[in-house]
Design a protein around this nucleic acid. Structure first.
Lengths: 131, 131
DNA sequence: CGGGATCCGATTAGATACTG
DNA sequence: CAGTATCTAATCGGATCCCG
């Protein structure tokens, strides 16, 4: 995933454990920071939901990205996938305890953004304005 | 930046303010979730630093990405850029109050990741193992 | 219905070279 | 020293088609 950094850090006497942490932290931040994860997680907080329901609940997402993101969440143990042996198929996605725990940790960050978004948007306008 | 989502949300009777928030939240999450931002911010928390010092303090980053990321931080008002009219040029970057405030908000999330990284890494191994 | 496989345009980021 | 400009390789994401 990130072959360059570890070797460069390793040569500097930095603890391998710390490198691991940096990599995992960055990785998880990248996941919650991506285009769709938070939207999906937010929807899933209300309870289990099927693939198609999610597809309708998250406007604008493609089938492909929905499947990808759900697979990533499942892989990390943040959601569970339950397939019922029926035809036509039915699949439920549910947030795990770990997923809910992450969601509430992210909530505080989202709170920060809500509290400061005006300031940020303002800073951008000033920066971009060609005085 | 994200032309599709707003129009799709707008058609559903969702408040424009809420759309704004979703977009800004996602945007800020994407910034802290990108490959270099957190590393740079972490280094900057110890105090002001010049461009070259940052380049050395953040192993593996290219000059281009360092300049880009610093510019983005400055644009959002998370850092300030101070250029001294000398030759050779000297430029300092400093975290603003807003930047420090974000950093500590992110800290809690980083704490969560540290607390659960073993669990996550474990889940991935199980998911990837070809049982 | 719930995806996986494929194709392709768009964005990203590293390497390199150049400049005030 | 502190960047910008350019080129390129890789990645991302949407559209489409297909299948159990």
């Amino acid at each position: 995933m990130d072959a360059g950094l570890p070797s460069e850090l390793a040569g500097r006497g930095i603890e391998p454990d710390c490198i691991e942490t940096i990599l995992v932290v960055r990785d998880v931040l990248a996941r919650v920071g991506d285009k769709w994860t938070m939207l999906i997680v937010t929807v899933l907080r209300d309870g289990p939901m099927r693939f198609t329901a999610l597809h309708h609940a998250v406007p604008g997402i493609s089938q492909r990205m929905l499947a990808h993101t759900l697979s990533a969440l499942t892989r990390d143990g943040l959601a569970t996938r339950t397939a019922y042996p029926e035809v036509p198929p039915r699949v439920d996605y549910t947030l795990t305890e770990l997923g809910r725990s992450l969601a509430s940790a992210v909530d505080r960050l989202v709170g920060w953004v809500r509290d400061h978004q005006d300031e940020i948007v303002d800073n951008r306008r000033q920066f971009d304005s060609p005085d």
